[in-house]
Design a protein around this nucleic acid. Structure first.
Lengths: 234, 234
DNA sequence: CGAACAACTCACCAACTGGTACATACGGAG
DNA sequence: CTCCGTATGTACCAGTTGGTGAGTTGTTCG
């Protein structure tokens, strides 16, 4: 999540050479500082002046490179989304048994979210604005397709071997996993303030990760709808 | 803070009497408009001028009654939190069988969250600000205690009858349920923009409610930690 | 009735905010 | 070395924003 793309200049200058005028570096620095600023204070709360002040360049450059506050914010959003690498390729969805595979995918997602709090914050902020900026961008569609594909494969194999229910689809499961992972980070503060427990407390991390695995595994292995409780009905 | 709870005035005027100068009414109107404004645009994005304009009074009154933007926002937060009634008392935790009880509590929470999107937004906004305003307030502690008590009772009874696992506590379960319910509303827009499914689509509401019930029930009925998958291990 | 106080109006402001006109200096191409 | 476009710094601006000083009117209560 440092610079971005290969955008350091047309002919990569020898490392160590510090140019005074370096479009790529300036642009990247603005983007990095803007990311922190917006993630920290939201779109309306983020200040162009503040971003400029924390950069080795001036406000003028922000407008030179990005055009305006909103465009800068969209650039930050796109850059952040692009930085979220597909992690599902680390799960061998074809050969692992489905329960193990889904647990692994859940655990990976869990760690991934915990490692990128700024991204979660940007997502929360964007939701406050009803995703109007994200909607205007075009770079995002299909970003999660690999994840959904992997999930779909796991679900299919699980159903075929008779251990998974068949009335939920990949999106449903993705939603459940995301909800759990996002909530821990995004609602950490109010949850902590009202309930007195820090969901991100490292001492509880393993327990929380285990819970998610159990949650998803148990859910998928449970009988379909209608068969409600397995308990006695007097 | 909240200068007074019953509002409306010292000696409740006969209903129907429209006074020109009515402190309670003015205050309440400001609070209502401010709630919408802040829930809509966030704290930094909310405008005092705009709130004043949409009220039958003037900006000066906002400062007269609330003191400033931040204090008004805190008042909005407190009022919103106070408005979230305890719903767990609608569940007969002592006599229903535990699985049915937890399903009912989950379903109630589900509907409750869907019915109060503004509250969810305020919570999200407050999390962006790391709950700094909520933390300064004192009215909140213990607000969710009834819920946790009910949950605790259900869990205890479930454990005693041998159907529930014993390595998760009430807070854990509350977290799972909240995560699911909050995520649906709070992250509706980015989820929809990226994945193309509206989590709040009425056509899918029953399915989503059912999923939550299955999720929590299956999770609690699953064997404890370590016993991971029930599948073959070659 | 007529103080006295609460409720309210109006005009005003200093600071900030996003945004820009304009001058200028670097650094690679030839 | 010279030229020229890209990159950059300075100064500035108009609109907005949260906030306020000071006076005015409705209500209530003795």
């Amino acid at each position: 999540m440092t610079t971005h793309r290969p955008d350091v200049g047309p002919t990569e200058p020898p490392a160590g050479t510090e140019r005074i005028r370096d479009a790529g570096r300036t642009r990247a620095e603005i983007l990095a500082v803007a990311t922190r600023e917006f993630a920290d204070r939201g779109y309306a709360g983020g200040r162009i002046n503040e971003i400029a002040a924390r950069t080795r360049t001036t406000k003028r450059m922000i407008y030179y490179y990005f055009g305006g506050k909103e465009q800068l914010y969209v650039a930050v959003l796109e850059h952040a989304y692009a930085g979220i690498r597909a992690l599902e390729q680390q799960v061998d969805v074809e050969h692992l048994d489905p329960v193990t595979a889904i647990r692994e995918l859940a655990a990976l997602t869990f760690d991934h979210h915990e490692a990128h709090p700024d991204f979660i914050r940007l997502v929360s902020i964007e939701n406050i604005h009803r995703a109007e900026h994200l909607g205007r961008s075009t770079v995002l569609r299909g970003l999660t397709e690999p994840t959904l594909a992997a999930l779909g494969t796991i679900l299919r194999r699980g159903r075929e071997s008779g251990v998974f229910r068949d009335d939920v689809d990949a999106l449903d499961v993705h939603q459940v996993i995301s909800a759990y992972c996002v909530f821990r980070t995004a609602n950490r503060h109010t949850f902590g303030a009202v309930l007195g427990r820090d969901m991100l407390d490292p001492a509880r991390r393993d327990h929380q990760r285990q819970m998610l695995g159990d949650l998803v595994a148990a859910f998928l292995q449970a009988p379909g709808p209608g068969s409600g409780a397995a308990t006695v009905q007097p």
